[in-house]
């Protein structure tokens, strides 16, 4: 299933997006650039504030950890020096999680991370915050092999995929910039360097490799043809521009 995105659908926030993929749905909003509190003000850079809010309950250390990861990754793509002494405030509200997602042995915050990253990027695009590049992110899971033969890693697996492939030995989250540089990697579990390398290459392929790559298992499709996440992002932005420019062609 291709991810679904809605941009700029909230009225109050400066930028907003809802990103739905594999049973996960996250609503994101950006306020900014706005006034920063004196104690957080930086003379030459913008301050970034990220709130991750779980679907149920209030934030726990798990969310704080995700916030730190997001903060470091997004900080590297936001042109913070072009909007000094301001605050960019990103709120990510998890709306729904896949059913039965908690019964698998995959670290739940790791499985959520790519969805948060994708949502955050879409909201930043919607808010027109200056960025040096875009990013795409994906989860790779490596199931434990029962025989000596290694099993192919699962790319952007759904909750059902993970359930069927149990036990999972390791999970990896990768994020790539628009110019195909690795921005973030978080891995969990037991794995060899070769396995990690394979997972990384697979992730790169779905995120940003040129056409001719494998594409997602289920296929991210735009207008019927398989594309990688980078091209998917481009199609989302194209739709945004079409909506903004439709007055030019309106009768």
């Amino acid at each position: 299933m291709a991810p679904e995105a809605h941009l700029s659908h909230l009225h109050r926030a400066d930028g907003s997006a809802t990103y739905t993929h594999n049973g996960y749905s996250v609503i994101g909003a950006v306020n900014g650039p706005i006034e920063v509190q004196r104690r957080d003000e930086m003379p030459e850079e913008a301050t970034l504030e990220i709130h991750v809010r779980p679907a149920a309950g209030i934030g726990s250390p798990k969310e704080r950890h995700l916030e730190t990861l997001l903060h470091n990754t997004l900080r590297s793509i936001i042109l913070t020096r072009s909007i000094p002494r301001t605050l960019v405030q990103i709120t990510l509200q998890v709306r729904s999680l896949p059913e039965g997602g908690t019964v698998t042995d995959v670290n739940t915050s790791l499985a959520l991370l790519p969805h948060l990253l994708q949502t955050a990027l879409l909201t930043l695009l919607s808010a027109s915050i200056p960025l040096s590049t875009t990013l795409t992110s994906v989860l790779v899971a490596i199931p434990a092999s029962k025989s000596s033969k290694p099993i192919a890693p699962l790319l952007a697996p759904t909750a059902d995929d993970l359930l069927r492939a149990r036990p999972i030995r390791s999970t990896h989250v990768f994020a790539f910039s628009g110019n195909r540089k690795l921005l973030l990697n978080e891995s969990h579990g037991v794995f060899t360097y070769e396995e990690w390398d394979e997972a990384c290459e697979m992730a790169e392929e779905v995120c940003c490799k040129d056409k001719g790559g494998v594409g997602l298992n289920e296929g991210v499709e735009v207008d019927g043809s398989q594309v990688n996440l980078d091209e998917w992002l481009r199609s989302v932005v194209k739709r945004k521009v079409e909506v903004e420019q439709r007055w030019r062609i309106a009768p």
């Binding site: 109050r12 609503i27 504030e49 709130h51 309950g57 405030q89 709120t91």
Partner: peptide
Amino acid sequence: IITEFSPMASPAFEV
């Protein structure tokens, strides 16, 4: 019943 406002609805809402 838990109601906690987040900055999503307005920057005036602080966590």
